[in-house]
Amino acid sequence: MVFCTVTFTLTNCSNDENLEPSIEVLNPLENPENGPAAGNPDGDSPIPAEAGTEDVTNPDSIVGDGTPESCTCDAVVDAVAKGGKITFDCGPDPITIIMDKTAKVFNDANRDVIIDGGGLVTLSGNGTNRILYMNTCDPDQVWTTDHCQDQDHPRLTVQNITFADGNSINETEYDGGGAIWVRGGRFKAVNCRFFNNVCASTGPDVGGGAIRVFSQYNNLPVYIVNSTFGGMQGYGNTGSNGGALSSIGVSWTIINSLLSYNKAIGNGGNPAQSGTPGGGSGGAIYNDGNTMTLTVLGSLIEQNEVIAYGSSIFFVSNDHSGNIRIDNSVISNNIGGSWYPVYPSISMHSDTPIEVTNSTIE
């Protein structure tokens, strides 16, 4: 899939032309449609069927009527609220849709929510807003079971799409997740790019510059497939912990993906050291909680930065369960931090099982 282009289009559903990005974050990217392609170009690990793209041949909603002007954030918000299979018809050229409000999944609308950008669409928070939100335990999005923390739906898939300039710094109740915040059901991202997204810059237990996830159904993994987080200087994602990805008690399987130039900029770790605000762990990936696994296949993790621990990966299981598996991957040239008991740039308990095959970690 080819993403790179010199075409640039912006549409905005806001009447407020004076919105200014927070001084705590970088200015929005000038041309977010540009930048590195989705995925690790050298990644060739097999992709399980359940981790692949979803069929959107017969969409339930089409954003746009064939023109760039018809593709607005209101149209995206309405489509996501209805759920189902969502595609875009914004014309033949790449387009950036400015999201000045968050698109939110309603738990009673459709068991499946599939957002497919066709390789042409960027959703931009414009440096001021989170882009996408799903939470099975948020009553405002409708409770559908008496066990909201462990239900099998909605099943949210984002594919063939770019998320840029998301910002959740001003979110207080559900913090972290600059581009996407998810709790419950299932979530996966396939053939996606995440550029310049940010969340809170300090705090011991907040993170996910791009994505933050909680409570996946039956402890099944989040799949991240053929996707790019950062990828080059100026495109990386930033948060207190987990510059790209953050979770508590969630398993991840990351396949043929590129995570680079992401930063965990908090300070003091978790729990926060005396006199510090806490955070700064997991330059690319931050996994905390119990009974979880991290699987990295065919992926490249490099040039991520950290203040405290785990310049590439922070994986701490409170009950010392779970494991890490790394195959056919390269983890190198990550910067900063300490506490690397087994492999450089990976912070973990020394008794955490870790299996590394056909990989370079340096």
Rank of each mutant, 00 (worst) to 15 (best):
N196D: 13
T57Q: 05
V206I: 04
N196C: 06
S124Y: 10
V222G: 02
F88Y: 08
V250Q: 08
N267L: 15
S359C: 11
A81L: 10
S45M: 12
A308L: 06
A79S: 10
I161H: 11
G275N: 00
I324H: 13
I254Q: 11
T276A: 12
D100K: 10
G209D: 03
V330Y: 14
D112C: 01
H147V: 14
N167E: 10
S251N: 06
Q151N: 00
A109F: 08
W143Q: 05
G118I: 01
T144I: 02
T291F: 15
T352E: 02
E33S: 15
D78V: 12
T9R: 03
T136W: 05
G239S: 05
C137G: 07
L294T: 11
V225I: 08
I224W: 02
D89P: 01
S317L: 06
G166P: 05
G310I: 02
P271C: 07
C199I: 05
L120I: 07
P353E: 03
M348G: 03
E355N: 13
T357F: 12
G336I: 00
G83Q: 01
V105C: 00
A284T: 09
A308K: 04
W339R: 08
E355H: 13
S70G: 01
M232K: 12
P36K: 11
L132T: 02
N318A: 11
T295H: 08
